[in-house]
């Protein structure tokens, strides 16, 4: 009869990889299956040692290779891919319309309700990044997925640079409006990209 790992042994692999800083759930799920399949294969092809000895041997040989994939919060290849998706979304009609509405709402708030000067102007991008991050949280809860995480890092970098830059702007100057336009597009395209990515994972990972 073919040997299969028990639920406890699978859990052991999962915990080990979590403790080895494989942050993202989607990457860890695949690695757990990979390691488990390899151990089962060795057991079924004559390795009579117990699970922990085979596991130890396997990890000594392959741990570095595995950590390369998941131990960092970012990955250049994934950043490039999500960056392209984001740029593609910037031209989507929903984003163009949304950015236009967002820009004018912000300008209306600035002129008639509350002036976005100094502290308010600096807090503004921070609020936007929190709104985008909350989309991922609302859709997938605390689960972390590689494309969502990398996209978060990309957007966070933009808004952090923006916060530094925004403090030098003169209120209601030309550059103030240029910055508002770019921020509006980034915010709306960011919301759409984050929604698309989070929903992609939800559809695939929540069905099992």
């Amino acid at each position: 009869m073919e040997k299969k790992l028990t639920a406890e042994e699978i859990q052991f692999i999962d915990t080990y990889l979590t403790n080895s800083d494989i942050h993202y759930d989607d990457i860890r799920i695949e690695l757990v299956d990979h390691v488990a399949s390899e151990i089962e294969s060795r057991m079924n092809y004559g390795d009579d040692r117990d699970f922990y000895d085979i596991f130890k041997d396997y990890m000594i040989a392959n741990k570095a290779d595995m950590e390369k994939q998941g131990s960092k919060g970012y990955n250049w290849k994934i950043l490039k891919i999500v960056g392209f998706s984001f740029l593609k979304n910037c031209y989507h009609w929903q984003v163009i319309l949304g950015s236009f509405l967002f820009f004018w709402s912000t300008i209306a708030i600035d002129r008639f309700i509350y002036k976005l000067e100094h502290e308010a102007l600096i807090v503004f991008p921070t609020t936007l990044i929190l709104i985008i991050a909350s989309i991922a949280f609302l859709i997938n809860g605390k689960k972390k997925f590689s494309f969502v995480g990398n996209f978060g890092i990309l957007l966070y970098s933009f808004f952090i640079i923006n916060i530094q830059y925004i403090s030098y702007l003169t209120h209601q100057s030309l550059w103030f409006y240029v910055n508002m336009t770019i921020t509006s597009v980034f915010f709306v395209a960011g919301c759409k990209t984050m929604y698309d990515l989070s929903w992609y994972y939800k559809k695939r990972f929540n069905e099992v």
């Binding site: 299969k4 790992l5 028990t6 639920a7 699978i10 799920i29 757990v32 299956d33 488990a36 089962e40 695939r204 990972f205 069905e207 099992v208």
Partner: peptide
């Protein structure tokens, strides 16, 4: 995604 042998 499929649940197979105690894992996804």
């Amino acid at each position: 995604m499929q649940k197979v042998d105690n894992r996804i």
